[in-house]
Write a protein that binds this DNA or RNA. Structure first.
Lengths: 205, 205
DNA sequence: TAGATTGTTAATCGATTAACAATC
DNA sequence: TAGATTGTTAATCGATTAACAATC
């Protein structure tokens, strides 16, 4: 299957909306509803569902319970979802205690830091010395890391994480990292998003 | 000019890389260099520059000093870059003290919160009651807000911000908000990014 | 049946890439 | 000059949208 990043992202959004509808007592949902909720067309919704083999009824829309089961299977909801946080400064600690993860079955299992005064192996989520990271990642079979380190240490750590077999990195450091076949990297650059927004807000159009 | 969001994002990246080169003593840069740095083709770089009227020399690449001046003009570096943070929980406070903004000339000038125990009008960056927000935004001519509130209060605040004349919202709440002609919205959904990454990391390909 | 909705095929659109001319 | 590089025009590609057939 050759799913694009965008279509997978939409799948996650569908899932979130459908869950909400289910909690409101809905049993069925139409492509029109989902399109409205995501701000896209209903054709796009049907195309996405079709691509992943999610089927509905010609008249009655899509069965919510069925779709949720299918989406969970596609998105791999039943799998191991452990992540580590690399760099336990302010942002790192914020993400370690971020409440939004649990709803998605994501669990931060450890943080790593190079500063000895930051280390706290007995915390609710342990913060360990970055030197212990290779062994930890191997032992615990960690696939995904969140990188929240200062700019100047980011390139080194990106390399190290890749060499440790990490398969995905959510990078908050203000350096542009590139995905490789073995490691998917997503860059979140908050300052750049804002800068970008200032442009659009003031653009002559 | 009909610049896409993506091309503007690339412009910001070019700027960052070129600044770095300048600090290393470089005077000129080639489209090949920039392409490598961003992980894109050199043709794309030249196309982007061409679109915004940035010119180089047939043999000698692009003059760094000239390009920086042009990029700053295009990206509006000289303008007012004040933002407010709406919702001063953990993530809100982290962003209020985020060090990555100053380099881009972005300044968080105030935070707003509904919880009285969170309010601190005399802090380095004041945290005010959310009731004072409409007046503050009007007086200070705030265009852009960062939204870091819980899911259930997000829809209301999104509406309020729009009605107060806010032109851009960087939304960290886990709801999908849609841009309107008067208000550009960027959603940053960290849990969803991770979920997405888990898919790609484990996808059969 | 008529109307509403899914699902697919074809058309469109925009962005990227290829090809190449211009020229330093 | 020859080689390297910019800048533009044409081709390609992928994603979205339109059109419409199928059917509940």
């Amino acid at each position: 299957m050759n799913a694009s990043r965008d279509s997978i992202t939409r799948l996650s959004h569908y899932r979130r909306v459908i869950f909400k509808l289910k909690s409101l007592g809905f049993r069925r949902v139409f492509s029109d509803n989902l399109g409205d909720a995501l701000g896209i067309s209903s054709v796009q919704v049907r195309k996405d569902f079709s691509e992943f083999g999610l089927t509905g009824n010609k008249k009655g829309g899509y069965q919510i319970d069925e779709i949720i089961v299918d989406l969970d299977r596609i998105l791999g909801k039943d799998m191991l979802r452990k992540v580590v946080v690399v760099g336990c400064g302010r942002m790192g600690k914020t993400l370690m205690s971020y409440s939004g993860f649990s709803g998605e079955g994501i669990k931060v299992v450890a943080g790593f830091d190079a500063d000895p005064s930051n280390i706290d192996p007995d915390g609710r989520i342990p913060i360990l010395d970055v030197l212990e990271m290779p062994e930890y990642i191997r032992k615990e079979k960690i696939q995904i890391a969140i990188l929240t380190v200062p700019e100047h240490t980011a390139p080194t750590l990106l390399e190290q994480l890749k060499s440790m077999g990490i398969k995905g990195i959510l990078n908050f450091a203000p350096v542009q990292a590139h995905s490789t076949p073995n490691c998917e990297i997503r860059n979140i650059n908050i300052a750049l998003e804002l800068e970008n927004m200032f442009y659009f807000v003031n653009a002559p159009e």
